[in-house]
Design a binder for these strands. Structure first.
Lengths: 233, 233
DNA sequence: CCTACCGATCGGTAGG
DNA sequence: CCTACCGATCGGTAGG
């Protein structure tokens, strides 16, 4: 494959000029700093999911955002810091909602239902962010890791709290809390590996089936067994 | 940090010589080709799990195996081929056993129990291989990917077959087979993310709890509910 | 946000 | 299984 000739001749307009030419002249033209920052984080999220953190180069990201490699360092200080920001951006809303649920005075069963719905909604709405969280956070190193670990711990402890409270209150059967928590998270998180928007099942169907599996089967108390839903066969 | 001086002086013995000196002079000294090949594949499995495929360099691997970078290419033809061999090495025994189980004339419930035990045994015995299979196989490219895909498909279809047969035979409740299969695999595969040999639970305990969750709760028919085991609370 | 540039490392080859 | 070597790419910096 031939190199593009402007690599050699250095005659073609630089990206910023090209963008200005392509941009509609309707007034709200120049992207603000925050817009570009957000664009970088979202593009990185998508690329990190697709190619992995270590498989994504700064050049890949610059191409996706349509700036020069070096320009990215106007917005981020390192690739590690970018990973941190991708993770925090992805986690923020999710964790806030889980905190709310934990703070209500609903029954453990209702809390768990809401927590699982929150979890599933999030996977459907930001699948790339969740996949990066699950697969790539292990590549975060000190000092970024330390700052981030609290988020993960908080998430674990909120979830565990709901489950253990429910077991103590006899709203759930006397299962092993630790393994059951991890089993439930495994069921749910595994969605990021197989869910595709054009698959045979809608988001509502999948949510219904999984909630039924967890609440009415895995954690059935022997009393309240729901009827099978329309999609359960 | 200072470079080791032999980098500059080129006086220290080369690795092969050093190994010969360190080797006990008891007769069975020189490793055979197959031994070295196997050592490479096992070291790669461990490194790919620890650092990811893209995070592991040929130099990392050469260091682990104690040969020069270039020497690895006497045994493998490319990093991609190495990944393929790591995956095949990890999958072989597992798949063979699953085939055996599928070919028996046991009930679906018994087949599923054996399939899950096989799956769990494998995670406990070869955690690195399973983790690499789950996380890194997506980095396998054509033409290696094509050759490998059949293994994955076979594994899926064997597992699905057992579950669907059991649902048709009314040995399992009328759950959605696809989602339930993925939920069970998620529960089990998630083990690779959290199991640590020095954790609070033994392999036997975890196996017992997870089998109880799947067979007696998730797939309870309403008739046979096992008593809670000694570790279930 | 750009041009210009860099040392380190990457996977891999030639030839023995 | 080694020495010697390579072109490409890596994440990142200087200076504007």
């Amino acid at each position: 494959m031939n190199r593009p000739s402007h690599r050699l001749k250095k005659k073609a307009p630089a990206p910023s000029v090209r963008r200005a030419l392509e941009r509609p002249t309707d007034g709200h033209s120049r992207p603000r700093r925050n817009d570009t920052e957000q664009a970088i984080i979202r593009a990185a999220t998508r690329l990190f999911r697709e190619k992995g953190y270590n498989g994504t180069s700064i050049a890949d990201l610059a191409t996706a955002v349509k700036v020069r490699n070096a320009s990215l360092y106007y917005y981020i200080s390192s690739k590690q810091e970018l990973l941190l920001r991708v993770l925090e951006d992805g986690m923020r809303g999710f964790l806030a909602r889980l905190e709310e649920i934990g703070a209500t005075h609903l029954s453990s069963r209702e809390k768990l239902r809401l927590a699982l719905e929150n979890h599933l909604d999030f996977i459907f709405q930001r699948p790339d962010a969740v996949a990066v969280f699950l697969r790539e956070r292990r590549f975060l190193e000190s000092p970024y890791l330390d700052r981030y670990r609290r988020n993960v711990d908080r998430y674990d402890s909120l979830f565990t709290g709901i489950l253990e409270q429910g077991i103590r209150a006899r709203q759930f059967p006397r299962v092993n809390a630790k393994v059951t928590r991890l089993a439930i998270l495994g069921m749910i998180n595994w969605l990021t590996e197989w869910y595709r928007p054009r698959g045979g099942l809608s988001q509502a169907q999948i949510t219904h089936i999984l909630l039924d599996l967890v609440l009415n089967r895995l954690l059935a108390t022997g009393r309240a067994r729901a009827l099978p839903g329309p999609w359960s066969a």
